[in-house]
Amino acid sequence: MQFRYAPEIRSRFPQLCSRALLVDSFDAKADPSDEITRLIAIAEDRLAAASEGAFPEIQAWRRTFTAMGLKPTQYRCASEALLRRYRKERTLPTLHPLIDLCNAASLAFAIPVAVFDTGKITGTLTVQSAHGNEIYESFGGEIENPEPGETIFADDDGRAHARRWTNRQSGCSAVRQETSQALIVTEALHDTADKDIAALTSSLTQALAAVWPHAAMKEVEPL
């Protein structure tokens, strides 16, 4: 499994920091509630001090969305959307143990965490500018084409596995009950992104090991 950034993305956003983790041999029967509770407590402490819009992690993504020509209050990065929802409802959706755990980690660190079923990805997964003919499948099954120039996650078959970078993932490669291998991608652009993504990865790796002791984990170096 290879994960890379197209040269134009690296050039436009030189401050980008990211890490990718390949997780193998997990299942949907595990109970991540203890680890989720721990991570949510971190988010609670941060939200008690300020709303998510004041977090440097979120502010950096808002600037990035503006640079991409998107209204940051209309299209939000995944971590901001989670934080907003949690602040209002004080709960997170229950989807799959791995997704629920990664959502809690995203909430705690205010950093987008994308999770892809590798069995649905052909070849290399690349963050790139869309040509406009890529195929994106929504969670409802609708088929869309990204706008030309839009930042997407694309595979070698021309499938878009996320639109507007960290805004919306595809239903095609969503983790489901039968998924046994996934690629977890974390991305940030704020001043302390490198240190914070390292802390997120360490915390998430420990949580994954606690929930799935027999799972195999390997860091994938973004190209």
Rank of each mutant, 00 (worst) to 15 (best):
A216W: 00
F153W: 12
F3P: 08
K120M: 15
K195D: 09
E89N: 13
D157A: 14
S138P: 03
A105Y: 02
Q206L: 09
L16A: 11
G69S: 04
K218F: 00
Q181V: 07
I184R: 07
G149N: 13
L70K: 05
I42T: 09
T91D: 09
A81P: 01
A60N: 07
R159E: 01
H214M: 06
E221L: 15
I99P: 02
S138E: 06
I58A: 06
T192M: 01
T126I: 14
I197R: 11
P148I: 02
R84F: 00
R159I: 03
A48Q: 13
I9L: 10
D194T: 09
S170E: 03
T151N: 00
A50Q: 11
L83Q: 06
L21W: 11
D117C: 08
C172A: 15
D194I: 08
L107C: 03
G132R: 05
D157L: 04
E187D: 12
I99K: 04
F153Y: 15
H214Q: 13
Q15T: 12
Q177N: 07
R12V: 00
S138H: 07
N167R: 05
E187R: 14
I42F: 08
A49I: 04
P72Q: 08
H96A: 01
T118E: 11
H161Q: 10
S202R: 14
T205Y: 05
